[in-house]
């Protein structure tokens, strides 16, 4: 099985502010890890470091035993060429809080662009596959619409299909439901639920404690750039060992709507 991840000693600063202060994380193939924590705890930055959208300052990421963004030579880590980084990156699909669909392209073109432009697939074949993927996320009827003609929930499902079209080994979700109206959250979570059930390796940064409870194998609680606590979902969510985890969970359960408002 493919799709294992290993993160070791990840550090990242923006200017003087150290956002990640040494993060270790293992994700087994097919495992679903939900990362929770207050805003500014470094969750999203961690996710962007996994696929080298943000180059790390220290530490490394391994996906299926190959280094992300670096090459190991003569006892040092050299940053890879852009082409090599791009090649490694496409093994990891990513879904963003703001969907980030290509707004000049229809849903189906959003999905085929990667396979056609990056993998050099036959456009007609790619389109057939793309329509299949869109049908799987319940958007068969919307394939030829532009992003602006779709609701937030529909756009996010297109974004998931776009990532899946590259046949990634790992899927990274960066607060995929935080920008959605409450009534649209469910349709996106259902699609993610299905993906998890099919054995996709997933890291999900989320405020949806219910989703984490239902789907995650492991829940990681981050605060101030470090992992405070991690373990089986049931244990972390229902009987957290750390006081900070408990306080955060109590806060989220008391103000569930407020968490949607965070940008």
């Amino acid at each position: 099985m493919v799709g294992g991840l290993r993160l070791r000693g990840i550090r990242k600063s923006f200017g003087a502010q150290e956002v990640l202060r040494g993060v270790d994380l293992d994700v087994a193939p097919g495992e679903v890890v939900c990362v929770i924590g207050p805003s500014g705890s470094g969750k999203s930055t961690l996710l962007r470091c996994v696929n080298h959208l943000e180059p790390v300052d220290a530490g490394f990421v391994l996906v299926d035993d190959s280094l992300v963004g670096y090459e190991h030579r003569d006892g040092r880590l050299f940053e890879s060429s852009e082409r090599d980084v791009a090649r490694t990156r496409r093994r990891m699909g990513m879904v963003f809080q703001q969907f980030n669909l290509f707004s000049h392209l229809t849903a189906v073109r959003n999905v085929t662009l990667g396979p056609v432009r990056v993998l050099g697939r036959d456009p007609r074949e790619a389109e057939q596959e793309a329509r299949g993927l869109l049908a799987r996320v319940g958007l068969a009827a919307h394939a030829d619409k532009l992003p602006a003609q779709l609701s937030g929930g529909q756009q996010q499902r297109v974004a998931i299909a776009r990532a899946m079209a590259m046949k990634p080994a790992v899927m990274l979700f960066d607060e995929p439901t935080s920008a959605l109206d409450p009534e649209l959250v469910g349709e996106v979570l259902t699609v993610m639920h299905d993906l998890a059930a099919q054995g996709m390796t997933m890291i999900v940064v989320t405020h949806e404690i219910g989703f984490a409870h239902d789907v995650a194998d492991t829940v990681v609680f981050m605060d101030e750039g470090v992992i405070v606590e991690s373990g089986p979902a049931e244990q972390v969510l229902l009987s957290p060992k750390s006081e900070r985890t408990a306080a955060f969970l109590a806060h989220v359960r008391r103000h569930p709507r407020k968490e949607h408002d965070h940008a």
Binding site: N51, L53, E82, R83, A86, R87, R89, R90, M92, G93, M94, F96, Q98, N100, L101, F102, S103, L113, G114, R117, V118, L119, A159, R162, A163, A165, M166
Partner: peptide, 18 residues
């Protein structure tokens, strides 16, 4: 053009130039 769309393009394996 929103920066996020470039991020999205990079994650499906494009280079910055593409």
């Amino acid at each position: 053009v929103p920066r996020g769309q470039v991020d999205a393009a990079l994650t499906i394996g494009m280079t910055r130039a593409t």
